[in-house]
Structures are given as structure tokens and as C-alpha cells.
Simulated assay, not measured.
Amino acid sequence: MKHLDYLLRPATLDDLDVMEKFSKAAAFSIRTLKPDRARLAARIERSLLAFAGSEAPNGDEIYHFVLEDMRAGRVVGTSGIVASAAANGRFYCYRNEFLAHGSEELGITNREHTLRLCEELSGHTLLSSFYIEPEYSATLAPQLLSRGRLLFIRNYPQLFAERIGAENPGLCDDGGNSPVWDALGHRFFKMPLLEAEQRTGGRSKSFIAELMPRMPVYVSLLSKEAQWAMGQLHPDAELPFGILVAEGFDVDSYVDIFDGGPIAEARVAMLRSVVSALNVALRGDAGAEGEACLVANMERTGFRATLAQGKFLDDALQMARPAIQRLGLAEGARACAVRVT
């Protein structure tokens, strides 16, 4: 697996079997991929329509990708983009805030961590559905799987919001028990976390606002277990989370209303991959060396992204011809490229 022969492309119905496998392998860390074959097929079909651009964008689009190991001849990962969080409603989460309470007479000042139910991420574009087979975690493949989406957003800004977010799963055991949910959400929903996740199907349902407290929640009044778990990350999410942090996402302002996992948020135009990406002409070189690059074509329906060793030469990128072919391009074609490190 010490190679760069990977391809990121739109998912098709031919990928349904492997998508179902991924959804079962990561039951608690991919909220948007439930192990339901019919729902997965509908998601892929919806994604294909979005990539095709046959209808005017309305914010309800999703774009779903798969990552192929070209040498192994199989799909090894998946990721997605939701064009607009709660396109037809409101996206609810908690905002971390701090309130100061003091008594001059007693000489006591307290700084209290509070959670405020908010809708500030409504309309944000969301990164979603990241999963890669564990044996690939130490390769450059996760970089392509995560950051390749950002190049697609960079090339088609009219399809997405100016700000972007990414939900990250909080602490939860194999049985679906969450300290944050047990201490907070369960008191208002009166049901286990997994049932609440299934019945809401997202963070945009009106009954979230109807049931959850509107007044600030003082974290210090929750159980010790919940206080410790608030804002903590599920171990399965450390890899994609680290890539988001390196991109420049703020990960301290928002947490999920269900399991307390951190929600990353940023301005698209300020992300590392977007700022650093260059439009280049591709030049083929059978013995190309240089630095590792992430390269994407400029197409929508036929979007492709790959990794390659390349040399930036003025307005061009010199890279191996097989990598150019993986993008569905010929020498001299224009592409978008960014350094991996």
C-alpha cells in the first residue's frame, strides 16, 4: 500500500455492496450511512443526480465519493458532502459559551462552561460520511479521501455555502451508550441514543427545539462522566478529525446535541487546500519525481482526483502519465493541484 495509485470518484450503484459493508463496519461513527441497503441505494442515486447537475441547485444536494486502490482493484473508503445543512429547516447544535459569576462581597468569581442550543450552522455545507479501511490509515489515501472533496467545492463554489462544517462522533460505547446523552438528552427525549438518532435522522427536526431546553445548560451540573466526555472525540474519528484540524477548522465552538462530539467549522475560502490549490497544465513524465500532490480534474459529472509525485513548473505540473490518465485527462489539460504536506 506504499503507493499513490488511488482514485477518488463519485459513487455509483456498482459500489452499493461495499457501501453497505462500510456502513456496518462503522455503525457508531458514520451517522449518515445507516446499514440499510435501500437507503444507501437512494443516497447514491441522489448523489448521481447532484453530480450530473440536471436540476438547478437548491441546497438539498448530496455528493458521495468512493476511494479506489487501483493496484488492489477495489474500493477502500468513502466520504461525502451535504450542500446545505438542514436546507429545508434548521440545523441544531450546542454552542460552547462561558459565563462569569462573581460576588464582590464574598470575593468569589466563577467562570462557568455553558451550552446554548443554537441554529448558527443552518445553511452551512457539511462534510460527511468519512470512512476508510483501517489498514490504509497510515498511507496518504485518507488525505485524498478527505481533501479531495475540498477541491471539488473549490472548483464549484456556486454549489456550496461560504462556510462549512463537519460533525464528529463523540464518546459512545459499543452498545450505543453516551455519557452526554445519558446526562442531558435522555432527560428530554426519554429514549436511548440510538433510537433518538434513528427517529430524528439528522439535526434539523423541529421536535429537537421543542424538547431540548432553550436556556443555557451549565455543564458543571451534569454528571462527572458527561463533563469529561463533553467535546471529546470517538477514537474512530481521530484520523479524519486530524485532517480537518490541519485544514484550519475551528473545533472548539460547537458540540453535537446528542453525544457531545466536537463540530468543526470554518470559512471555505480560508481552508488550507482551497487557499493553496493551483490551476495548472499537466505535463506527462514517465519518470516523474518531486513532491506528493493531490490533483483533481475540473469536471463535475466526471470528477476525479488522485495522488501523484509531481513538480510545479511555472503554470504547469509535471507528473507521471498514468496518474494523468486516472483523471480522465490528456497531457496539456488543466487541473487543480495542491501539495499534500
Results as ranks from 00 to 15, higher is better:
Tyr156Ala: 15
Val75Ala: 02
Leu67Phe: 02
Ile257Gln: 01
Ala183Trp: 01
Met212Leu: 15
Ala38Thr: 11
Leu278Tyr: 00
Val18Arg: 15
Ala308Tyr: 06
Leu16Ala: 12
Gly332Phe: 01
Gln325Met: 13
Glu162Thr: 13
Arg339Cys: 07
Phe249Tyr: 13
Tyr156Leu: 14
Ala72Ser: 08
Gly148Leu: 10
Ala333Trp: 09
Met298Ala: 12
Phe98Asp: 01
Ala38Leu: 02
Glu135Ser: 05
Phe189Leu: 14
Leu329His: 13
Leu16Pro: 07
Ser47Asn: 08
Arg39Leu: 12
Asn177Tyr: 09
His186Gln: 15
Thr114Asp: 02
His101Thr: 06
Leu106Met: 06
Glu68Val: 05
Phe189Arg: 03
His234Met: 10
Arg43Gln: 12
Glu112Asp: 11
Thr114Ala: 00
Glu265Ile: 03
Gly260Trp: 01
Asp14Ser: 15
Leu278Ala: 10
Arg300Gln: 14
Val66Ser: 05
Ala87His: 14
Ile153Asn: 12
Ala269Ile: 14
Arg267Ser: 10
Ala25His: 08
Arg199Pro: 02
Asn297Trp: 12
Val340His: 05
Asp285Met: 00
Cys93Trp: 04
Val18Gly: 11
Arg90His: 07
Leu49Thr: 08
Asp182Pro: 04
Glu289Cys: 07
Pro35Phe: 03
Leu271Asn: 04
Gly201Asp: 13
Glu68Gln: 10
Leu313Ile: 13
Glu133Lys: 02
Ser54Ile: 10
Arg334Met: 13
His234Pro: 04
Thr200Gly: 00
Ala337Glu: 04
Gly261Glu: 03
Leu140Gln: 12
Leu115Asn: 00
Glu299Asp: 15
Gly102Lys: 05
Val245Pro: 02
Leu145Gly: 05
Ala183Leu: 08
Leu222Asp: 09
Gly332Glu: 14
Ala264Ile: 05
